[in-house]
Amino acid sequence: MNPYLPAFQWQSRAVLGRHLRVHMRNWHTVTLPPVCEPLILLLAFGVGLGEQIGDLTWHDKPIDYLHYLGPGILAYTVFMSSFFQSLFAAFIRMHFQKSWEGQLTTQVRLEHVVWGEALWAATLATGYAAVVCVVLAVFGLTGALPLHWGWLPLVFPLLFLGALMFSAFGLFFTAILPSIDHITLPFFLVIMPIGFTSSTYFPLPQTPVLDAVVLLNPLHHLAEGLRWLLLFGELTWHLPASAGLCVVLLLLLVPLDMRLLRKRVFGDR
């Protein structure tokens, strides 16, 4: 069976709708983290730390740290929220709440549950990115963060694609983690290495090894591409590179997720 087709079937949308409904009921509390986190990061690091360290050198240009940080936080938000949602929240739903089992006794099949989880994580992460944009806009209105806002509509489909890929990555770990006690492992094994080699918080030194590593890091291309686009209005190769890497990884991860989760959920081959 084609593992990608269920993404477009009504059952996946029904699962997505379920998650959306639950989220909307708690909107007043669940909206706080995506609003407060970028605000705190921009104030603490962008403004606070930025005043201490002065300008950075990025591609041989001097750049204010707050300016460097803003687009990076947008990329990092998409990465963290989708990964966290598809790993932690999906694991809880699968293992403890047994809501997957409840869905699987209806017309919803496992491939729909998996796509529903991935689409939800991507939707949520893109929504959080929109909230980050609002926070960035507030900084922009004060004159502290001048960005090329006209490019934002172009950016959102790419943010969604990146979030979808990272949620497929999160579901991979949902499938293989033996228990909730091991849930911190992916944070050490995936989030920290990807995050530290992504140029989100600081420019990376140029070495042959690091250059090769970041070349394959979609978050690095997303952060760099957003920085060029939103700070200078330049469309660089980083954004298509990020999109291409995300598509390739999605094509690889989705069938793998399906296979591993089938084994996990059904004890089946």
Binding site: Q11, Q97, G102, T105
Partner: peptide, 27 residues
């Protein structure tokens, strides 16, 4: 229709919400 051995209702919804949500899983 299936009533599983374990309670697999959705505790994020009320009793009525569970029936509504289950209804949404059918076409």
């Amino acid at each position: 229709g299936v009533c599983t051995q374990d309670d697999t209702y959705d505790n994020d919804f009320t009793v009525r919400g569970n029936l509504e949500q289950t209804g949404r899983y059918y076409r």
